[in-house]
Amino acid sequence: MNVLASLLALGLLIVIHEAGHFLAARLQGIRVNGFSVGFGPALLKTERNGITYALRLLPLGGFVSFPDDDDNDQSIPLDDPDLLRNRPIPQRVLVISAGVLANLLLAWLVLVGHTAAAGVPGDPSPGVMVMTVQDGAPAAQAGLRPGDRILSIDAQSLGSGDAAVRAAVDPIRRSPGQRLELEVQRGEGVRTLRLTPADQQGTGRIGAQLQVAMNGGSRPVRSPFEAISAGSAQFAGLFSRTVSGYASLLTDFGTTAQQVSGPVKIVEMGAQLSSQGGSGLALFLALISINLGVLNALPLPLLDGGQLVFLLLEGLRGRPLPERFQLAVMQSSLLLVLGLSVLLIVRDTSQLAVVRQLMGQ
């Protein structure tokens, strides 16, 4: 059930992202001829008001299609003012950026709604919370589990709050291949675990996601404004850490690239968080929605950010970039993204515990 909840959450995020593009176009009277979840052959398809809605074979994203993309469609004049390419640049910018805005808005609404329903979290508890653990990683081999709270490393208390996360991450990064002794609280008991961070290009990694440990208690919100304020603060923190993570791909690619996860690993993380109840599922939904928004905003071909770069260059040149150039960039980028997705799926699947058991490892 946890895996199913994770899959449904990912599907919802894709639908919300594409719905942002779709609604931004339709509300401006721009022609749309397709709304698809997934890529490849259509498994389910229906047509309403000239728009084809489809669920496709490969669940790696989705797309909204426009008549502009179909060179064989001669039913619409090329100078039709309702074609996307014939609209002013600000209107096209809104259509392209609406998917990112929809994902960020969803994450904000989820966090505010969860705060309104569950209450305002108490003060940070000592230590750091283990949110997810990768199968076969040093953290899993040492016996760490999602929900554990690490209180100290090598007899050094971690403190609480954001400082505790830094106090936990720093010695791990500095100690590749060296054994560390962790004091861990699990339920009502405290135990000692020993793990050895893996050496990834001179940096220690344990294969676990750590987060500020919050006091299990919470109090009801006093007003809608408090729910908005507390939820917005959580959103700002997640957004800031997500942007920093993507920025580190530029500043420390060799180390950060090892942490990039594919669809399989994301589903596994969602299942782990879902097992912690509604709060875990809400955090997963908000976190992945923010990641999807930030990822699509990157100025890379095939992503929304890359399309915005094309529009920026068009505005500077006073005319669109050559269609053959845009098509070549898009096709090569599609092959790159699909190839990377396949590699990540193979890598992440091979790391799942059930697969290693079947292989006798």
Rank of each mutant, 00 (worst) to 15 (best):
D70P: 08
D71T: 12
D73M: 01
Q74K: 14
Q74S: 13
I76N: 02
L78T: 11
D79N: 14
D80M: 03
P81C: 03
D82C: 00
L84A: 07
R87T: 02
I89Q: 02
Q91I: 02
Q91Y: 01
R92K: 13
R92S: 04
R92T: 07
V93S: 04
L94P: 00
V95W: 02
V95Y: 03
V95D: 06
I96A: 11
I96T: 14
S97I: 15
A98R: 01
A98F: 07
A98G: 04
V100D: 00
V100N: 05
N103E: 07
N103Q: 04
L104N: 08
L105F: 13
L106T: 13
L106M: 13
A107D: 08
L109S: 09
L109E: 02
V110F: 06
L111H: 05
L111K: 09
L111C: 05
G113L: 05
G113E: 05
T115N: 12
T115G: 10
T115V: 15
A116V: 01
A118D: 06
A118M: 13
A118R: 06
A118W: 05
G119L: 05
V120N: 07
P121H: 03
D123E: 15
D123P: 04
P124H: 08
S125W: 04
V128G: 09
M129E: 15
M129R: 13
V130W: 06
V130A: 06
M131R: 13
Q134Y: 06
A137Y: 10
A137Q: 10
A137H: 10
P138N: 10
P138W: 05
A140S: 15
Q141V: 14
A142D: 13
G143M: 09
R145F: 04
P146N: 07
G147K: 02
G147V: 10
D148G: 07
D148H: 07
L151N: 04
A155Y: 09
L158W: 08
L158K: 11
L158I: 03
G159M: 11
G159N: 11
A164E: 01
A164N: 12
V165L: 12
A167Y: 02
A167M: 05
I172G: 01
R173V: 11
R174M: 10
S175I: 02
Q178H: 10
R179H: 00
L180H: 01
L182R: 00
E183C: 00
E183T: 14
Q185Y: 01
G187E: 12
T192V: 14
T192H: 07
R194Q: 14
L195M: 11
L195V: 03
T196N: 02
T196Y: 01
P197Q: 08
P197H: 12
A198H: 02
Q201P: 00
Q201W: 00
T203I: 15
R205G: 01
R205T: 12
